[in-house]
């Protein structure tokens, strides 16, 4: 019991950032109906961005967050306009090759630029702990969790309450109907892809104080993100959030009770169990 609570809370906190990474993926899937295999590599790129801003310019990741989110939005927007959008409405294999191709290019570019070393940064709050009753909570993770949920809430409000947000949801299911009210679906697609990638810029800044970065780091998160998205329901906003938290908790509890070796099977087990009961995921609907 004394160990359960810290593991639970720790998992929940990590899950917040998983949710943010998965939100970007699920938004792209839900609106563009494409699986973004470049997601992990773009997160890696964003993490190197956050690392560069911190190590070379002394910019704290939390301060750099808006900037990096904006940069990653621009990267995503341009990527859609010039690469992914060109093949997005054709053959599924073309889109697979395009997003995977982007991933390969980015991964190898990172190897050339940064070598295979792992890097970390130091922040004043990285090792600080907060006492909450009997619990010791790492400050960096608490901040990351709060920011991730805040950003998820802001994104939800944007999608629910603004004209542009409504247009994004409309184009997701009915692009021709959207065109008839004067929406330009292609712009909306680029925007949605940009927002999905901007989530990675934010996530990178939240991860970096407590995580390392290397050219392979995307792989760690991309598997989690895909698990979360499918578990929560492909394209589902609440699914990504709940799924992210659930995967974070499961991962930690598995580590606690089954140890380092067996622990990692818990998330795949959860995944299989959920899909057996609900093949469309927790919040997924049958189209």
């Amino acid at each position: 019991m004394a160990l359960l609570m810290p593991a639970l809370v720790g998992g929940l906190l990590t899950g917040g950032v998983y949710a943010l990474v998965a939100l970007g993926l699920t938004l792209i899937y839900g609106v563009l109906h494409i699986v973004n295999f470049a997601h992990g590599s773009l997160l890696m790129m964003a993490m190197f961005g956050a690392w560069l801003l911190a190590a070379k310019f002394g910019l704290d990741p939390l301060v750099a967050l808006p900037l990096l989110a904006a940069i990653m939005f621009a990267v995503g927007w341009a990527l859609y306009r010039f690469v992914i959008g060109r093949v997005a409405h054709g053959d599924d294999r073309a889109i697979l090759l395009a997003t995977l191709g982007v991933a390969v290019v980015l991964d190898n570019l990172a190897l050339v630029l940064f070598t295979g070393d792992t890097r970390t940064i130091e922040t004043p709050y990285a090792l600080q702990m907060i006492q909450a009753g009997p619990l010791l909570i790492p400050l960096a993770k608490l901040i990351a969790f709060a920011c991730a949920l805040l950003l998820a809430g802001a994104l939800w409000a944007f999608l629910a309450l603004t004209d542009t947000g409504r247009a994004i949801r409309a184009v997701a299911r009915e692009p021709e109907g959207a065109a008839l009210v004067g929406i330009r679906p292609d712009r909306i697609f680029a925007l949605a892809y940009g927002i999905g990638i901007a989530c990675l810029g934010a996530a990178a800044c939240l991860l970096l104080p407590s995580f390392y970065v290397s050219p392979q780091v995307g792989g760690v998160f991309v598997l989690v993100a895909f698990t979360v998205v499918v578990l929560g329901g492909m394209g589902s906003f609440p699914g990504a959030v709940v799924g992210g938290l659930l995967v974070g908790i499961t991962e930690n509890l598995g580590g606690l009770y089954l140890g380092e070796d067996l622990g990692p099977i818990c998330v795949p087990l959860l995944f299989i169990a959920v899909l057996l009961v609900r093949p469309t995921g927790l919040f997924g609907s049958v189209r």
Binding site: D163, R166, R169, G177, A178, L180, I183
Partner: peptide, 30 residues
Amino acid sequence: VRAGLVHVPEGRRVFPNLTVRDNLLLGSYA
């Protein structure tokens, strides 16, 4: 659309995942 030529299509093409209110609000998007 902005000039005032508006087309209600064959097969309706409403936004199925949006509420009636959001559908109507998007009608005035332009």
